[in-house]
Simulated scan of single mutants.
Amino acid sequence: MLAAVAASAVVVTGGGQTASAGCEFYVYYELKATSVAMRWPSIPIFTNGKGGTLSVSKQTNKAVSYGVVAGAESEVGAVLAKAKVSISANLTKTNSSTVINGFSHTIRPAYYGHVKYVSDGKRVSWVKKRQNGNCTYTTIGSGVINFPSISEGWDYWESKSRAV
């Protein structure tokens, strides 16, 4: 998923100063996002098999939070604000849940079933740029932040091995 944001739509700061070359000074973000399943740290990965059924239930008051993979922690708020507009309004800094959520799945014979509880988040790559008054551009920051969303559920897969 590509969510590059038009510079004029995401002006963060800038005094509207125009240089003699006719270019306006402003700062903006370019964003790209891919899906990421963010595992709840308090809930283990469950495994069962070979064959049979895997049934689990989640009841916790823990949370899954954003994680800065690369770049500056100070950019989290600005990047999240832009990502909520251009990528998904469901993104959040923290997803906290207290509901009970059950899951059951039949495992194919000779396979192991695995399941983990996740928030359906986004891995947001960002670049912060400045258009200088002389019509040139300068990169002033970049990074990657994993954001959870308010969407959550079980992520199931099967393998020939019990190891995850």
Rank of each mutant, 00 (worst) to 15 (best):
N146T: 14
E158H: 09
I145S: 00
N134V: 02
R123M: 13
K122T: 03
R162W: 14
R130G: 00
F147V: 13
I150T: 14
T139M: 11
R162N: 11
R130Y: 08
W126G: 00
K129E: 07
S159P: 01
G133L: 15
N132R: 10
T136F: 15
G121V: 04
N134W: 03
C135D: 04
S159I: 02
E152G: 03
G121M: 12
G153M: 12
G153I: 03
V127L: 08
I140G: 03
W157L: 03
C135Q: 14
K128W: 06
N134E: 04
R123Y: 04
I150H: 03
Q131G: 05
G121T: 02
S125G: 06
Q131R: 14
N146R: 07
K122L: 14
G133N: 10
S159Q: 10
S149Q: 02
G133T: 07
G141F: 11
S125N: 08
R123F: 14
G133C: 13
G153L: 12
T136G: 11
Y156Q: 03
R130M: 12
K129V: 05
N146H: 14
G143C: 03
D120E: 09
K128E: 11
G153P: 04
E158M: 06
S159M: 05
G133H: 09
F147E: 02
D155K: 07
S151P: 00
Y156R: 01
V127G: 01
S151R: 11
W126I: 01
V127A: 08
P148S: 08
G121D: 10
V127K: 10
D155M: 05
S151D: 13
W126N: 02
C135A: 12
R162F: 15
T136D: 04
K160L: 15
I140S: 05
F147K: 04
K160F: 15
S151V: 08
R130V: 13
S161Y: 13
G153H: 11
S125F: 14
W157C: 07
I140P: 01
Y156I: 05
I140N: 10
K128H: 02
K160S: 11
E152D: 09
E158A: 13
D120F: 11
E158N: 06
E158I: 08
T138S: 15
W154K: 01
W154R: 00
K122V: 06
R162Y: 15
S125T: 04
F147G: 00
T139R: 05
V124Q: 04
P148N: 10
R162I: 15
W126T: 00
S161V: 08
S149V: 09
K160P: 02
W154Q: 01
D155R: 03
S159H: 10
T139Y: 11
D120C: 07
V144C: 03
K128T: 09
K129T: 04
S159N: 13
P148V: 06
G153V: 11
P148M: 05
W126R: 05
D120G: 12
I145W: 07
T138N: 14
K160M: 09
I140K: 07
V124L: 10
V144S: 04
N134Q: 12
E152F: 12
G141N: 06
S151C: 15
C135K: 09
T139H: 04
D155S: 15
F147S: 03
E158V: 15
S142W: 12
Q131C: 02
D155Y: 10
K129G: 02
R162Q: 00
G121N: 07
R123E: 04
G143Y: 01
G121W: 02
